[in-house]
């Protein structure tokens, strides 16, 4: 299987459409015959990232590269950035407003979950400039 590359633009002003990119990525992995557990891990990790983009950053771009043995996902936004990544990685820490919680998110589980379900994750962020999250999920 050759390397496959996909790009998605995530709108920041339509919460109802959040998850469309993740759904498409999940379906592509399923069609390629990737194991269900690896598909599930990648889907959850990218969906959490996509939701974060919509909630915190006004949208962004997702870039995905699928190789025979892994999927590499990069999420780039130009939102407010993360001042303290260590703090943001703690379960339960959230800067989401109450309006976001009433939608079922903002419990401070997004980034910890992305780390839990991916095999590698790195975050680079500058306050006022944006955040880039890179994740890899390996296929068993």
């Amino acid at each position: 299987m050759p390397s496959l590359h996909y790009e998605y633009q995530v709108s920041g002003d339509d919460f109802t459409r959040a998850g469309e990119a993740s759904s498409d990525i999940k379906n592509k992995l399923k069609q390629m015959g990737v194991s269900p557990s690896a598909v599930r891990k990648a889907a959850i990790a990218i969906y959490e990232g996509e939701i974060n983009m919509v909630i915190h950053a006004g949208g962004g771009a997702i870039s995905v590269e699928i190789l025979p043995d892994q999927i590499a996902m990069e999420l780039i936004d130009h939102g407010p950035g993360i001042a303290d990544i260590g703090l943001a990685m703690q379960e339960g820490y959230s800067t989401a407003p109450d309006a976001v919680r009433s939608l079922g998110f903002g419990a401070g589980m997004g980034l910890p979950n992305m780390k839990k379900y991916s095999d590698e994750m790195t975050i680079t962020s500058r306050v006022g400039e944006g955040t880039t999250v890179s994740m890899v999920v390996r296929f068993e």
Binding site: T16, A18, G19, S23, A43, I51, L103, G104
Partner: peptide, 13 residues
């Protein structure tokens, strides 16, 4: 909770 993200969450999980 009743919004489209309930369906999306169920899909991913």
């Amino acid at each position: 909770l009743c919004n489209p993200q309930v369906m999306r969450t169920a899909e991913m999980m």
